[in-house]
C-alpha cells in the first residue's frame, strides 16, 4: 500500500466519523431543545400557579373577611376606651 492509499483511507474514516458525529449532535440539540421547551412550559405553569395562589391568599386575608372572622367566629372586638390602659415608664 502506498502512502496515498493510506491517506485516502484515513480521510474517508474521518469523514464518516464527522458525519455520524453531526447526526448525533443534531439529535442531541433537538433533545435539549425539547427539554428547554418543557421547562419554559413549566415556568409558565408555575407563574400561573403563583398568580392564582396570590389571588387566593389575598382573598383569604381580605380585610372584611378578617374582620368578620375576628368578630363572629373568634368573638373579638376593639377594646372600649375605658379598657385601654397605658403603662408609663
Amino acid at each position: 500500500m502506498s502512502v496515498q492509499h493510506g491517506t485516502t483511507a484515513l480521510l474517508v474514516l474521518l469523514l464518516v466519523w464527522l458525519l455520524v458525529d453531526y447526526v448525533y449532535f443534531q439529535n442531541e440539540t433537538r433533545k435539549l431543545f425539547a427539554a428547554t421547551q418543557k421547562i419554559e412550559k413549566q415556568k409558565l405553569d408555575i407563574n400561573a400557579e403563583w398568580a392564582r395562589l396570590q389571588i387566593e391568599r389575598s382573598t383569604l386575608v381580605a380585610n372584611n373577611r378578617i374582620e368578620q372572622v375576628a368578630r363572629e367566629q373568634l368573638d373579638m372586638k376593639l377594646p372600649e376606651e375605658e379598657q385601654i390602659m397605658v403603662i408609663t415608664r
Partner: peptide, 19 residues
C-alpha cells in the same frame, strides 16, 4: 408578556395579571 402587577406599600397585591 404579562402586565406589571400593582402592590400596596406592604406588598399586598392590588392588581394582578393571570395567564
Amino acid at each position: 408578556v404579562s402586565r406589571g402587577s400593582i402592590y400596596d406599600r406592604n406588598g399586598e397585591p392590588l392588581a394582578l395579571s393571570t395567564a
